[in-house]
Simulated scan of single mutants.
Amino acid sequence: MQLRKVTAATAAVLALTVGATACGGGKKDDNGSSGGGKKITIGIKFDQPGIGQKTPQGYSGFDVDVATYVAKKLGYSPDQIEWKESKSADRETMLQRGDVDFIAASYSITPERQQKVDFAGPYLLAHQDVLIRSNDTSIKSPSDLNKKKLCSVAGSTSAQNVHDKLAPKAQLQKYPTYSACLTGLQSGAIDALTTDDSILAGYAAQSQFKGKFKLGGFKMTNENYGIGVKKGSPLKDKINKALEDMVADKSWQQAVEKNFGPADYKNEPAPKIGDIKS
């Protein structure tokens, strides 16, 4: 049985006047990208280890690697990228305003979002899953979460969806962040944490947690990660070509192994452009 995560409602905004330039700087060329030393502005998550994270050393994660590869194919070196935090509730607004050129931020393609923005990709097929302790043999299916303490993070509906649809006797425990959930999972205060498997793998791959957790492999939803662009942007086709190149030259698989490998993440094969799994 599949679930669909409820996304945060976004405010309706008016598009800026035609011809406005991206905040990353510089006049854009006829292809919808800037060059010649100009900047490109890319939206990512700043707080998702393994996906998109800002650290004292810079930016890291699978989405960062994908975005950097795409930017290079568009003619930009890493030092020409301006990274901008794109929180889930702000993504459509940022694209519509022209705050960013594109967004790669665990951004699931949905019909509702496609009414507001365009998507290149998908470039990763993720699934809602659970993270449990490596030595836990009691949770082998979603129904085994009944009477278990399931971490519920503020602003996320994943745990509530599991409670409502698959494990009605699951005991939801509210924590402020996923990092706090991991600490609770490690100590035994909670039994499981749920969100996208890619996000869980990124957290579990952190050095302090290596070998301590495992994914359930339940695949409770399909989450097709796409790269968001403004409606009608000519960048969409260029990004799609870059994503195809990334798969073909093995850079995509290398990025998966680099960012998710320590969590023993069983990733799906790279999706075909335009192949959105419901």
Rank of each mutant, 00 (worst) to 15 (best):
Y225V: 02
G216E: 05
R133S: 09
L95G: 05
W83H: 08
K147Q: 09
A89V: 13
G226Q: 05
D30Y: 07
Q186K: 13
A263C: 14
S198R: 03
L145A: 01
M94Q: 13
D101Q: 10
S134R: 09
N146K: 00
A105L: 07
E112V: 00
P176G: 12
G211Y: 11
E257K: 14
I44S: 12
K219R: 15
Q96V: 06
T17W: 07
A248Q: 14
S233T: 03
T68S: 15
A248I: 05
F62P: 06
G32W: 08
A270Q: 06
D129A: 08
V100F: 03
K39P: 04
T110D: 03
K212E: 10
S156I: 01
L166N: 00
K39A: 13
R113Q: 12
D237P: 03
G211A: 14
A15R: 11
C151A: 15
K84H: 04
K39V: 15
L124Y: 13
A9V: 15
N135W: 11
G75Q: 07
A22H: 07
L182H: 07
A189E: 14
K140D: 02
P78E: 11
I40Y: 05
S141I: 00
K174D: 08
D79L: 03
D136H: 00
P49C: 12
K210G: 07
E223Y: 03
V153G: 09
D136M: 02
A154K: 14
E82I: 13
I132K: 05
A180T: 15
T68Y: 12
K28R: 13
F46G: 09
Y178D: 13
I51D: 12
S77P: 05
T194W: 01
W83A: 09
F102V: 10
E244R: 12
N146R: 01
S187G: 10
A104D: 10
A205F: 02
T221E: 14
P56L: 09
S143M: 00
E112I: 00
I109N: 01
I40H: 04
Q160C: 04
N222Q: 11
R133V: 08
I199W: 03
D264P: 02
K149D: 10
L95P: 03
P49H: 10
N224M: 06
T110N: 03
K5R: 12
Q96K: 13
S60K: 13
L150S: 06
A242D: 13
V162N: 01
D79T: 03
L215S: 07
Y76S: 04
Q53H: 09
K212M: 12
S198Q: 07
L74S: 08
E92G: 01
S198M: 11
F102I: 09
S106K: 12
K147V: 01
F209Q: 09
K72G: 07
K230W: 02
G26Q: 06
P142H: 01
E223L: 15
G24W: 07
V117S: 01
L243R: 04
K39W: 12
G37K: 04
T93C: 15
G26A: 12
A120D: 03
